[in-house]
Design a protein around this nucleic acid. Structure first.
Lengths: 153, 153
DNA sequence: ATATATTAAGACCTTTTTATCTTTTATATA
DNA sequence: TATATAAAAGATAAAAAGGTCTTAATATAT
């Protein structure tokens, strides 16, 4: 019931593309990596995979970079998670039981299950673009930059 | 917002002790490891740490093993998690944002937060013994044994 | 055409987590 | 008191996750 760091990076970066990139304003890994403070070679790998999965698009060369086509914009956050982590990970029992369901539930099953449905709904019901627009309209900042570490540097 | 495998093992094994062990019926790592299908040397390490953390107790030698004292029984599941994973891990933002709270929430903050409170409550409000009794009274089996893998072996 | 900017691909490294093995120590009991 | 049994301690190994680097391919602008 949790995302890998890779998935988190992928989600944040794809949402960044949704907000800032377009077919004629492609953005390079380097720029995104710096904006949301993610290691850029690692993000490059993830983006490669997302391109293969047809969740984002890319072109090489000058003024190249990553962006979302109309089709890409219809994908949702769960597609990103599925592409990077697979669906098993997010569906595993919170306490690690192999057989955990309504008939043989773990002690927290009936707390976890509604949450899982709710968050999976959130990740499925809006497409990337709608999801992004909601974030923008509410003025939210999505960054993993740690302010306290900046003070130390 | 997730438990390590180590924490899961520790929780299940401690609950096993709560149900099956007592001061005059100590149980060895080997027996527990087999019952709930956890690697026994790994569990031995975890138990060492839980003993140091005064969450479970042990005695060496013949008829030795692990068990819970009255004091141990008053500990709760969150104490186990804290001892093995620390509390940071379970408190991290679901999407990995460094600053995620009510004022600058991530897109799923208001879904995750109630869940987190609810599950932390569950892990804190009952002590180990009460938690275990609830499981037993409901006839639940806590195992990570995978039935499908047993067919293959 | 050529130079350049950028992704693609894949090998490689590091850290963390999970798991194992070996030796030492404590203790019950015969 | 000797012996067997079980945990404690710590060294080591394997696997997974996270991260880096180098080279190749390719699209674009000039």
């Amino acid at each position: 019931m949790m995302l890998s760091r890779a998935s988190k990076y992928a989600i944040l970066s794809t949402l960044y593309l949704a907000e800032h990139a377009s077919e004629n304003r492609k953005i390079s890994v380097k720029v995104i990596a710096e904006s949301i403070d993610v290691p850029s070679p690692f993000l490059a790998k993830l983006f490669q995979q997302l391109v293969k999965g047809k969740i984002i698009s890319s072109t090489k060369g000058p003024n190249g970079g990553f962006y979302l086509t109309k089709k890409n914009q219809k994908k949702n956050v769960l597609d990103i998670i599925e592409n990077i982590d697979g669906l098993n990970r997010i569906n595993e029992c919170f306490l690690g039981l192999s057989e955990c369901d309504g008939t043989n539930p773990c002690p927290v099953h009936f707390i976890v299950e509604p949450f899982k449905n709710s968050i999976l709904g959130k990740f499925r019901d809006k497409n990337i673009m709608e999801f992004s627009q909601e974030i923008v309209s509410k003025g939210r900042k999505l960054t993993i930059k740690d302010i306290s570490t900046e003070i130390n540097s």
